[in-house]
Nucleic acid binder design. Sequence first.
DNA 1: CGTCAGGTAGCCA
DNA 2: TGGCTACCTGAC
Length: 273
Amino acid sequence: MESIAVKDFDLEKTLGCGQFFRYERKEDGSYLISLRDRLFSVRQEGSKLFFSGVPKEFVIRLFRLDENYQKIIKSISKDEFIRKTIKTNFGMRLMRQDPWECLISYICSANNNIPRIKKNLEMISMKFGKRIAHDAHKGFSFPNPGELSNYDKIRGCGVGFRSRFIHETNQTIEEGRLNSLKDRSYEEAREELIKLKGVGDKIADCVCMFSLEKLEAFPVDVWMRRVMLENYFKGEDPKKISNNRIREFGREYFGRYCGYANQFLFYYRRLQK
DNA sequence: CGTCAGGTAGCCA
DNA sequence: TGGCTACCTGAC
């Protein structure tokens, strides 16, 4: 099996931090990952990352192994608390997800819980995708834009009130246009995404950060709100702090790579605290 | 049985 | 802008 020498990288934390849903841990400690029409496995042993089913360049891109982690960590290390969250989950990296799959994933995440989000995406793949295989592993591809046109079938995936949003987004999105948001500014990309039904501030920021290269995004959900109020707005009246204000503060305070700070804070507050 | 979960749309002051 | 509330569904 091929391998890559890695440093400042922790596969388990990267997959487990909650940014990505379509993966499964196997008995031997390897992970089976589904991404659009790919099915592949990855396993880490110390500073070696073994992989099969995809080219090396794909793995490097996906896990951002091409970027200067130390530089980013240094730039967001603004205080003791954020340093603690980084130390706890050192090696966690943001992933470069596929914009379309990421968009649908996060539309599914609204007022939902992680086990069910995973199940929803699995069902969508089973009902709309194609059978794919990698070695002895079997799976389903994620459907392409335009292929989620059967509303009743979407309902059958257990996504509830999000069915309408998924259906509408499917009819609206032109994939080339979605992907080209990478070349637009963060503000423009965000604005475009919010025009979609079912996509508000938080989901737009997640899609920007996880799939459109916008590490200057700072999504604020309930967990981010909690951890920020507890550590950066101490003594202030929570009722007077809007999520938008938290977002603006986070972007300003942590700077250009605030998305990384965001994910460390999120991960820490959800699991460790 | 209620409650709750990684928000958002729609409506109103 | 900011502050409500309903919303599918399945697991406690």
